[in-house]
Simulated assay, not measured.
Amino acid sequence: MKENKIKKINQLADGKFISLYDLQYKNKLDQDKHWTVATRKDKEAVEDFYLNKKEDKVDAVAIAAYHIGYKKLVIIKQFRVPINDYLYELPAGLVDKDDKDVVESVTRELKEETGLDLLDVNNDYSIEKTYLSPGMTDESIAMIFCTCDGELNKDGLEDDEDIEAILVSQEEAKQILKSKAKMDVKAFFMLQNFALLGEKMFV
């Protein structure tokens, strides 16, 4: 069986945050096929990743944060244009090129979206890179488990960010799940596990 292999790339759209590419590849039957991919990479990084098989950097961080003072999980409710509605998510954000590591990204994004201060990262539970929707995008995230402290505020939100940060108890996590409210998959699994395990997820 021959390995699937990308032979050629063609840019379809160049956006500020996301671009589209047509990838020409060989399938396992050695047939020429095409796949449309959304990516956050610039063109040079796309070529390195797909044509030269160079290891890519993680795109973003997702933050599973436990507030040690209130003993609650930190989640957010955010308006997302593609969904045209608010949904539950975890605090998250893009990794800046100048960030020395993902901890710097987590510290910044947690503060911006919730007003809370990062205390400690649990490296045993965190993962440096995982993929969100590999059927349509190469986007990857670092999933970081951590503890935090402080008071919620909206002082760091950008103009286009419509976010409400929420502290959720174990019982409240169960109620959110029962409500069948809209949420992204990361928030779903985090709420589900927190409802079952509580602070054991973080200590």
Rank of each mutant, 00 (worst) to 15 (best):
E158Y: 13
N10P: 06
D101C: 07
Q24D: 10
K2R: 15
I18E: 12
M190T: 14
D96S: 11
I6D: 04
N52F: 03
N10G: 15
S126L: 07
Q31H: 14
V61L: 00
L29G: 15
M1E: 02
V203N: 10
S105V: 10
F145Q: 02
V81W: 02
K111M: 13
K43D: 09
L157V: 02
P91D: 05
E158T: 06
V46S: 12
A60Q: 05
A173G: 14
Q78I: 08
A165H: 06
F189W: 02
A165Q: 04
A64W: 00
C148M: 14
T130F: 14
K129P: 02
N193L: 10
E109I: 07
Y21G: 14
V37K: 15
D117Y: 15
K7A: 06
A62T: 08
Y25K: 06
K5Y: 05
D56F: 00
K180P: 06
G150I: 09
T147N: 12
N52I: 04
E172K: 15
E128F: 09
L73N: 00
K200R: 10
V168A: 13
K178V: 00
L23F: 09
V103N: 12
F145Y: 09
V103Q: 15
N123E: 13
N10T: 11
A173I: 01
V95E: 03
S126A: 08
P134Y: 00
D159M: 14
E164L: 14
I83T: 10
E112K: 11
K8V: 05
V74M: 04
E158W: 08
Y125R: 15
N84R: 05
I144Y: 07
Y125H: 15
L12K: 09
K180M: 04
M201A: 10
E171M: 11
P82A: 07
G15W: 04
I76L: 00
D149E: 11
A62M: 07
G198Y: 01
Q11M: 14
D14S: 10
D138C: 01
Q192T: 14
Q31E: 15
D32P: 05
V106P: 06
L110C: 11
K2Y: 03
A142T: 05
V46G: 14
Y70P: 02
V106I: 12
I68V: 03
G156N: 03
Y86V: 01
H34V: 13
K174D: 01
G135T: 02
L119T: 07
R108S: 09
E3K: 13
P91Y: 01
K111W: 12
L116I: 10
C148D: 07
L196T: 12
F194G: 09
Y125L: 15
L73I: 04
A181W: 01
V168M: 11
L119N: 12
N52Y: 03
Y88C: 02
D56K: 07
F49T: 03
K16C: 06
K72R: 06
E89R: 13
L87K: 08
K53F: 07
G15L: 08
K186S: 07
K77D: 03
E89M: 03
